[in-house]
């Protein structure tokens, strides 16, 4: 995917005034249409009742596997642990060579090299950065964190926004930080590591805030918007993802720029994953139904997808003993 930088994109030029000051940015974000909580949740629940069976289910499970950002973000992570995860990412089901690889492995920045050694260019390596998960550090530290991960070979950077600044109404500060991190994603050869901006929607609390954060990050030039760190409850939910999908849909209408969406945290079953794919299909349309534009941040989800995949192939229910624990 070609890197997109705000100033180089004609569609975004029209929004230059919006980001001229905190006042104008605030006025713009607060002028976005409101989100009625009850209505949004009802719509999400209604999409969740779609019945995806047989061939459609097989297609959805295969697709979901390719969209997984296989993630480990623990203080106890070791080189050995992430190497095992990297192997799993390449060959999720060792007994079945037709099983596709996942989209990426997502780790802390210091472990990027370990993963890269295993996966090479076959699977992307994503690193969380900018004082993940709290985002509480100086900008200099956040940028250094980012550059470090990019230098180590990260293909993708998952940054967190400063929720304190956002909730205090310092939108331009959040905006500038995203722009700066995006700049820090630049490699020596001029290409960019792919940037995902994490909102931690569980801390933003309202859907109005989620919509505002989405537009803010998209105007700042992010490649993806992502729900959560996985460290705060609630993490990804269907209604939050609905609001974000509506935002990327509207943003492309307005600017011509397509942005990806990544729900992360709390998606554990194939059934859940399929609900998300149905939502993508019906809210943004099939343009987003690829790993380039939609990802799942997850760890345990992958094994459930594999179990369901095996169930469809063999006609009997499988058990956790038949899949690797990494």
């Amino acid at each position: 995917m070609p890197p997109t930088v705000p100033t180089e994109t004609p569609g975004l030029a029209a929004y230059a005034d919006v980001t001229a000051s905190n006042t104008t940015l605030r006025r713009f974000l607060h002028g976005l249409p409101g989100v009625d909580q009850v209505g949004a949740e009802a719509r999400a629940a209604s999409l969740g009742t779609r019945s995806i069976k047989t061939t459609a289910k097989a297609h959805a499970i295969e697709l979901a596997i390719t969209m997984v950002d296989l993630t480990t973000l623990e203080g106890q992570d070791t080189p050995g642990k992430v190497r095992a995860l990297a192997s799993k990412a390449l060959r999720p089901d060792p007994s079945d060579p037709t099983c596709p690889s996942v989209a990426a492995v997502c780790v802390y920045g210091d472990l990027v090299g370990e993963v890269k050694q295993i996966v090479g260019d076959r699977v992307n390596v994503a690193a969380v950065a900018t004082a993940f998960p709290s985002g509480r550090a100086s900008l200099e530290v956040k940028l250094a964190d980012t550059r470090d991960a990019v230098a180590a070979g990260a293909d993708e950077i998952d940054m967190v926004i400063d929720r304190g600044a956002f909730l205090a109404g310092h939108y331009l500060q959040v905006f500038d930080e995203i722009v700066a991190v995006k700049e820090a994603c630049r490699r020596a050869d001029g290409s960019h590591a792919h940037l995902k901006v994490i909102f931690e929607t569980g801390e933003l609390q309202t859907y109005d805030n989620v919509r505002r954060a989405s537009w803010l990050a998209m105007l700042a030039g992010t490649d993806f918007i992502k729900t959560s760190t996985g460290k705060v409850q609630p993490a990804a939910t269907l209604p939050v993802t609905l609001v974000m999908l509506e935002a990327v849909r509207d943003f492309r209408e307005a600017t011509g720029v397509q942005i990806g969406v990544k729900p992360a945290g709390g998606i554990r079953t194939s059934k859940d994953a399929i609900k998300y794919l149905v939502m993508v299909n019906e809210v943004t349309g099939p343009d987003w139904l690829t790993p380039d534009w939609f990802r799942f941040g997850a760890s345990t989800l992958l094994n459930d997808l594999l179990m369901q995949r095996t169930k469809l192939a063999t006609g009997r229910y499988s058990g956790p003993d038949y899949f690797t624990l990494d």
């Binding site: 779609r50 995806i52 069976k53 289910k57 697709l63 992307n124 299909n281 099939p286 139904l289 380039d292």
Partner: peptide, 14 residues
């Protein structure tokens, strides 16, 4: 590794 988007057709669920 750009991938092609495909249509997601729902199989009959009677």
């Amino acid at each position: 590794m750009p991938t092609q988007s495909t249509t997601f057709d729902y199989a009959p669920a009677p």
